[in-house]
Amino acid sequence: MQSRWFYSLAPPALLLFSWQLLAAIINSSLLPAPLEVFSVLWAALIDGELLPNLGITLARLFASFFIAMTIGTAIGIFLGRTRLVDRFFDSWLIIFLNIPALVTIILCYVWFGLTEAAAILAIVINKLPNVVVTLREGTRSLNKDYFEMAESYKFSRAKTIKHVILPQLHPFIIAAARSGLALIWKIVLVVELLGRSDGMGYQLHLFFQLFDVASIMAYTIAFVTVIQLIELTILKPLDRRAQRWRR
């Protein structure tokens, strides 16, 4: 028990300490000390500038996350089940996996205008191939024995999906969700920076022009905290719940 506390508290404490030390040595406004950053964070929370921007960014993040996960899962399962189609589209996947995020974002804005839909589309296109590839692997690894069992006991389609397919795909869906969240929240800021007039990305861009490093760090802390909370309160429990049958 003691060591668990140690391992969860000591590393962040050391990080804060090193930061403080470095800030004291450099003594420049380009690397503000932790205390200063936290007071900026507090001020931004109080004057109500941070939360609306954080909210709009999270809304974009969730919208594109759910679209990419739904479509990607469907395509991934389809490709995993039909070998010929998969062979045909395999090169497409590799191309889309390797297009730089910046290129899709610029093209989406150029072709569809500086709109919300273009922004979401750009994020989805960046994330989609990832989900497809992960779920395709998952579908390929589905165990035939269980399908035969289900068929011989006349499982209905719904029963087969719920009790035979989804439990086997679950780890792959969680993996796609995890890496997806990490990827999307990096891209969403770039999308906002390039073509939106609100959200975290836009704000960071403003702070950059003002060289306001304290605010940049304060916003980063707020965002990372939210993402960590999602991981801890949603993804981890979901994962644990589905893994409880394992030895």
């Binding site: 024995d145 269980y146 035969e148 069992m149 011989s152 006991y153 006349k154 499982f155 209905s156 029963k159 009790h163 035979v164 439990p167 589905a242 049958w245 394992r246």
Partner: peptide
């Protein structure tokens, strides 16, 4: 009704023994 006992038990590992048995029942 055909019952099939396979060479490997083929119980779904993510369902309990009881759930595995009940799932085989017709609906």
């Amino acid at each position: 009704h055909i019952g099939f006992v396979f060479q490997n038990p083929r119980l779904l590992p993510w369902r309990t023994v009881r759930e595995n048995i009940e799932l085989a029942l017709p609906e």
